[in-house]
Amino acid sequence: MQDVSQPAVQGAIRLIFEHDADGVRLVLQQAVNLAVTGFDVHPDVRPGHYVEIRDAAGTALTRVPVHTAFTGSTEVFPEDHGEPITRVDASGQPGAFTVVVPAPEAAAQIAVVRIAPAAPSAPKPGAEMRSPAPAEPEVTDLASFPIERAK
């Protein structure tokens, strides 16, 4: 193969958040030259907590999962590895988490969201059978922040 070029990595932003019983705060947003894999920017909708990137009109452009925050508990590890790992309650305790999100040119807002499973719609009696339309997830905003672009 000739004339091969390595494609430029699309812009991304690292975000660091703190959270406690009072809510979620954004403590750092930092442009970063990093490829975000489809493993994190998965296009299928799964319940959980996410950081979502939106355009100026509030339309979601992309989202990445928050794996370890908001769990309400923490693990305690046994010194004897034959003993069980256990969990203890950590509800409301302060914590922090980070994500790296793609930052397309249209990105204007950051939102921390919770996605609940979509409720299945009841079949319509007598209606012609169709493939299920993609279910609209129930997205709840926990906090939102503007994206700061370097001048």
């Binding site: 403590v27 930092q30 305690v76 203890v88 309650d89 922090a96």
Partner: peptide, 21 residues
Amino acid sequence: GGNGIRRLLICNNTTALTVAA
């Protein structure tokens, strides 16, 4: 001693993430 359990070893997560970044 996090949560009163000695082997639960915790630190300031925000500082750790910020230094790593």
